[in-house]
Design a protein around this nucleic acid. Structure first.
Lengths: 149, 149
DNA sequence: GCGTTTTTGACAATCATTTCCGTTATCACG
DNA sequence: CGTGATAACGGAAATGATTGTCAAAAACGC
């Protein structure tokens, strides 16, 4: 229940994700393809989803690579990761800065919401208990207007 | 990315969790054992953890049953489920009412925190966007005083 | 080009969680 | 107290997302 708990949460340094020391990132067709795809699609998608989309549009990228790339982008803070209660990790390119998501339980429709008040509240509460180096995750689930009808 | 997204979040009715219709819940040694254990232990534990503890204390309960029971308790709202970024689901019997957790990244030490302001904020934001039947998850991670030193 | 170093990607491995399904235990009712 | 219907168990096998492996392929500084 410990020893590995800083994956997605921590603000990890942007480094090569394999095992190497401190070389330079290289531009590859695959990385470009994944980034490009993320720039176009709406909403959240799983790694497998994205992989399938790439295949469909003719780009040949291995599933493993998609995972690695997404992980890298997530670590770099360029995309968001969401862990819905029932399943896979979902990735999405979204706006800069810290924010949260309001997700439809039924169709997945997502709205980005900012909550400055929540941020400060979290910081304060944590500080009160002596906790440092704070981060948090917050997701709101509900049924969107479309799906409610 | 849809069709099954109401597991832990939804306030599902308390029903037999196998496949049957609407019979009555039965009291079994196993369920009692799991509940009893949860009542005694501190902090969060994974299903496998709890299963091991039961084995150690002589109770013979199948892993499958532990999973089922925990799921049931979670659905019934009697225990909390936390999904840490790196791994297994963690379960814990905690105080009544809705609340959140402040968790130490290093040692797992957890503090329950209430945030009425957050609740209302979430409701309001959701309502603004027309979302109904709101629920949310919020977890704060940090390094606790002990581990910071 | 060339050599070095990073990346890739097919496949195997992991591992928590579920499903299956024959067996067992509960419990309402007689 | 039996006892019968059926909820619950539990071990083994299945699932399925993610990660590890490692030889082969690409990048890029020179």
């Amino acid at each position: 229940m410990s020893e590995r708990s800083e994956r997605i949460i921590g603000r990890s340094a942007v480094q090569p994700r394999d095992g190497m020391s401190e070389g330079t990132l290289r531009n590859t067709r695959q990385r470009t393809a994944v980034s490009a795809l993320l720039a176009e699609v709406e909403g959240f998608h799983s790694a497998q989803d994205l992989h399938a989309m790439l295949r469909d549009r003719g780009e040949r990228v291995g599933l493993t690579t998609v995972y690695r790339t997404l992980q890298g982008l997530a670590d770099a803070g360029e995309i968001d990761v969401m862990r819905p209660p029932g399943g896979e990790h979902l990735y999405r390119r979204c706006s800069e800065g810290h924010h949260h998501h309001l997700v439809c339980r039924a169709c997945g429709r997502t709205v980005e919401v900012a909550g400055p008040a929540v941020e400060t509240w979290a910081e304060r509460v944590a500080a009160q208990h002596g906790y440092a180096d704070i981060s948090h995750t917050l997701e709101i689930f509900g049924t969107c207007p479309e799906c409610a009808g």
